[in-house]
């Protein structure tokens, strides 16, 4: 049996294995996790001819440098990512949404995500990972999931099996679009905030702070004034919820969020905008725009149709 693997020469900042997430465990405090940007996750798998629920390697900002050993394999990277493939005789500048073949000894250098946060690497084979509670998704805070619940580490090996014989190269024309406004629905504690607080929330610009990760995105800007109570009885959370603690700075819950929270919820980001929200880098300016539930549902249908349309083009 031929052994196929990547050796991690540089792990990158936050490289974790992710899939579609882990269901039915909120009640014991285990968050959903999963790929932050669901569309780019799905596209990367499709570019390698994989089923839609295969685990992929997610990276943030600086990605890993991987040296490949084994049989020829197809890889694809999605997002807005600068990467190179160093072969024996040449250096290839990588292009996202296009698959490439790696030969034994090639080096895949995922240099950085460009004006975005997350990118995805998939392969035409299976990463050798541990399935935990029906998901491969890694939650590094609770050490749950693939890779012993940890980020990629220097010098570790990532074993690969079931490499597909078919080495088809696939390509998709796609450009990630930035959004200027994050659309939201009113939260269940909207009325806790003063008229000024509500107005600031809907009109002022906020900046994504450096203290943002897979758990949450902290915002800075106008302090949102609360004139009722800055605490609520602790209750469940979902991703996209915008909580406002006593300091008035909103925090948006992201995929690895704590499952229970005690701060008032001013709003919830609509599902259609979540993939784009998570790609906002620290320093980005955002504004919120309120929509109603039926608009949010329609916008999600459209977003989902667009994703399926992209998948069908591959």
């Amino acid at each position: 049996m031929t052994k196929n693997y990547f050796k991690v020469i540089r792990p990158g900042i936050n490289s974790t294995f992710q899939d579609q997430g882990r269901k039915n465990l909120y009640h014991i405090g285990v968050p959903f996790s999963g790929a932050m940007d669901s569309r780019n996750y799905l596209l990367s798998n499709k570019l390698c001819g994989n089923k839609e629920d295969y685990p992929v390697l997610e990276f943030a900002y600086q990605g890993p440098l991987l040296k490949y050993f084994g049989d020829k394999i197809v890889i694809a990277i999605t997002g807005e990512v600068n990467f190179t493939i160093k072969k024996k005789d040449k250096l290839i500048n990588g292009t996202c949404y296009q698959s490439f073949i790696l030969d034994n000894g090639d080096e895949l250098d995922i240099v950085s995500t460009n004006k975005s946060v997350y990118g995805y690497l998939s392969i035409s084979g299976k990463f050798d990972l541990k399935y935990q509670w029906n998901s491969f998704s890694t939650n590094t805070k609770a050490n749950i999931g693939a890779n012993d619940g940890k980020k990629l580490e220097l010098n570790q090996k990532i074993n690969i099996f079931d490499i597909k014989k078919n080495l088809n190269i696939k390509k998709l024309n796609y450009t990630n679009i930035k959004i200027e406004k994050i659309r939201i629905l009113r939260g269940t504690n909207f009325d806790y905030f003063s008229e000024k607080g509500k107005k600031d929330f809907s009109e002022k610009e906020f900046m994504v702070s450096k203290l943002s990760d897979r758990m949450g995105m902290r915002l800075e800007g106008s302090k949102i004034e609360n004139n009722f109570d800055t605490n609520i009885k602790s209750e469940g959370l979902i991703k996209g919820v915008i909580q406002v603690p006593a300091d008035g700075n909103p925090i948006i819950m992201l995929s690895d969020h704590g499952t229970i929270g005690g701060y008032p919820k001013i709003g919830v980001v609509i599902s259609a905008d979540y993939d784009k929200l998570v790609q906002l880098t620290p320093g980005s300016k955002i504004k919120f725009k309120e929509v109603n539930l039926s608009d949010a549902e329609t916008l999600f249908k459209l977003y989902e149709m667009e994703t399926q349309n992209l998948i069908s083009q591959i």
Partner: peptide, 22 residues
């Protein structure tokens, strides 16, 4: 239904918008 989060006096039921709606 994807998840159920019971707390003192609330139950939050999160679901897959591809499969059902509010």
């Amino acid at each position: 239904i994807d998840n159920l989060a019971p707390s003192y006096n609330k139950l939050i039921i999160s679901f897959n918008l591809r499969k059902t709606n509010f």
